[in-house]
Amino acid sequence: EKMEIAGEGDLKRKYEDLKKKLAGEGIFSEENKLELPELPKKIGVITSPSGAAVRDILTILKRRFPIIPVIIFPVAVQGEQAAPQIQNALKKANLRADCELLILARGGGSLEDLWAFNEEIVARAIFHSEIPIISAIGHETDVTISDFAADMRAPTPSGAAEIAVPDQQDWMKSIENISDKIITIITQQINSKSQLSDWINKRLSQSSPKMTVKRQMEKSNNLRKMLSNSILQNLAKQDKNIHQLKSNLNEVSPRLKIHVQLSRIKELDQKIVSCSDHFLEGLNNRMMLASKTLNSLSPLRTLDRGYAIARDAKTKNVIMSADTIEIENDIEVKLAKGEIKVKVIEKHSD
């Protein structure tokens, strides 16, 4: 006579057959897994509304990031109606399309107790879900078909909640680090631009500038002070905003406000860089104008019009009168291009 495998042995055989079948279809393939969102806007939990699993999940989510809303999709997690209800809940969650992450969970139990999560309709519903799913069925030693089909397996329902959301304290530290980096960059830019302005002022002072150049220097210093004051005021305001954000996070941890503040910090950085570039461009234009003014006043420009400068070859003094030189003296004549040496053979006084 033929002996039939019954009870738990029969369930194990069905489990292995279905696992082999679905694996052959690629339902467990890693390349088909969806990536979990870093910070989901809303989380759906598919489980029994009265079990310990849902209480553990809600407790962990509230502790780690309390502002994320959670929707409970109540289902039976044991018995004949469990698998169809789980399948329908997965379809309903996908039709609503307001959750960015789903957690499928239940507490521990025997293979028979967990059998709803080894049903083919549940595995296929998980595979076809367009929303990433974390499977958290039973204890760490319990492995179901749903665990293989899901995008991520958690050892327990509490572990699923830990995976689903980051710790808000870690996010606050990240914001503080970003703020510190922005302040450091801005301070470095201020110091760099100040050094450049000092160097420009020194070069102008060494070029014997006229009143026009002096006024340009004074205007440059004023503009630099105005820029520095404006940047410092913006930094103080931004620092105040960051402290306010931290305070708000400690109270309610508003995710949207965090993104808004980060955008404002980025926009402020861009405005500061744009303002610095505009200031340097204006300063360079004023330097070019001052340089042209100095060149127009240079005595060397007179030589370009055909004049020359005569100096005594020995004393190097500029000769202003024929009475200051003698016949046979050597003199040097500076032209617009080059210099010549001549000897006095004759002189006439006016």
Rank of each mutant, 00 (worst) to 15 (best):
Q169A: 14
A93L: 06
W171C: 13
R286T: 14
E119S: 06
C99D: 00
V143H: 11
I68F: 08
Q216T: 10
I126A: 00
Q189L: 15
D142S: 00
V45N: 04
N88L: 12
I331Y: 02
T315A: 00
P74E: 13
L39P: 08
S158A: 13
N88S: 12
H278S: 12
L235E: 05
L245K: 08
R255V: 15
T302V: 11
Q238H: 09
I258M: 15
L223D: 15
A105W: 02
G306Q: 05
L11S: 08
F148M: 07
S263H: 09
I57Y: 15
E80Q: 15
S247L: 09
I86G: 01
E218K: 13
K173H: 09
K173E: 14
E218R: 09
E332G: 02
S135L: 00
K214D: 03
I68Y: 05
N94C: 15
G282I: 01
E25I: 01
L283F: 05
I133A: 05
I185G: 02
G44Q: 01
E35W: 06
P299Y: 03
V252E: 13
D17Y: 11
L39A: 08
L256Q: 13
T293S: 13
H243Y: 08
K21Q: 14
Y15H: 11
G159E: 03
V260N: 11
V273D: 07
I178D: 14
N234T: 07
D167P: 02
L90P: 03
I327G: 01
S135G: 00
F65S: 07
L22P: 04
S207I: 10
R215N: 15
I190F: 10
A76T: 06
